[in-house]
Each structure stands twice: as C-alpha cells, then as structure tokens.
Amino acid sequence: MVEPEAEAMDQLLLRMAAGERAAFRALYPLASPKLFGVCLRMLRDRAEAEDALQEIFTRIWTRSHRYDPDKAPAMIWMIAVARNLCIDRLRARPRDARPDDDAASAVADPSPSAEARIIARGEADRFRLCLNTLGADHAQAVRGAYLDGLSYEDLARRHAIPLNTLRSWLRRGLQKLRECMS
C-alpha cells in the first residue's frame, strides 16, 4: 500500500521538475522532519544540520528532474540525497573532529517512525532477518556506516580490526546481505 503522503511527495517532485515553486513549498513541511532527522543523526551538530538541510533542499530542487517514481519512492530518493551530502561533509571534517565511539554510541536509537512501522511489515522485516543472519558485528557495522556515517577507519577502530581486513569483511557481509534478500 502506498501512503497517501508518500504518493503526494512523488507528485510534488514531478511538479518541481516542471519548475513549479509552489510544489517545492508544499514539499518542505512534508519532507523536512525526516531529512532533518537524518542530518542531526549523521552530523550530530544542530547548526551544521540546519545548514545541511538547506543544501539538501537546494539539491532536491535542482535534481528533481532526475527523480523517477518508478525507481524509488520519493522519500527513499530524498534520503539518499541527504545521506550523500552528510557523508561528504563528515569526510571533509578534520580528522580530530570525527566521532569517537562514545559520541557515536551516545546517539540514542530513536523509536521507529510511522514510516518505519509501515515499511517494517514487508521488506524491512526481511532486511532485518538477513542482517541478523550476518551476525551481530556485521549488523552493527552496517548500521554504524549507514545511520551514523562511520567510515572504514571509524569502524576499524570500533571493531578493533585492521583496516584492510575490515574492508573485505564488510564487503563479504554486504554480498551475503544481497544474496539473502534476492
């Protein structure tokens, strides 16, 4: 089932692609809470998250013509835009400003949003099942990278594994994840 709100966001992106500013204005209140949540979790700095959110909406407007509703629901596409920007910003930070384990683990896991509860009934259940079959360490690494923007370096430190070993270990995990979900 497609949520009415999700379908509305698809339509708004298509209207933005046709140059309609009112669609952009209508999208902001619908999409900003989730995208701001992404920025806050990944950047862990409110001022930077607010600046990132402005840049993300700017990108959403300028790239709306690339959005294809047949390929991805609007929110998944927009979260990909947001995560890419946040990760680029994290990697551009000076090394000593990167998170240590305490800072990363201090971010509490929020309760799943309405969207999560709906998706969780299908694909996400399967994803969690597959993620769990990889083992707790793999699952933690995937979540740390995807949700908190941790780099290989951060993960190597957290899991106390040499960098190159970690890279091939995580790649194997991702491959297994893909096989499990296909």
């Binding site: 607010e50 991805a72 998706i119 979540r143 994840l177 979900m181």
Partner: peptide, 20 residues
C-alpha cells in the same frame, strides 16, 4: 539504496525550523 532503505525508519522525524 532500495535494499538499505530498510534502515531509513531508524532516522527519527525531528521538526525542522522553517528554513524555507
């Protein structure tokens, strides 16, 4: 992006200031 979007629900909704 579709596969890993299963984790998107773990990003909390946080009311954003009106930056429009």
């Amino acid at each position: 992006e579709m596969r890993l979007s299963a984790l998107n629900g773990e990003f909390a909704d946080v009311p954003a200031p009106d930056l429009l």
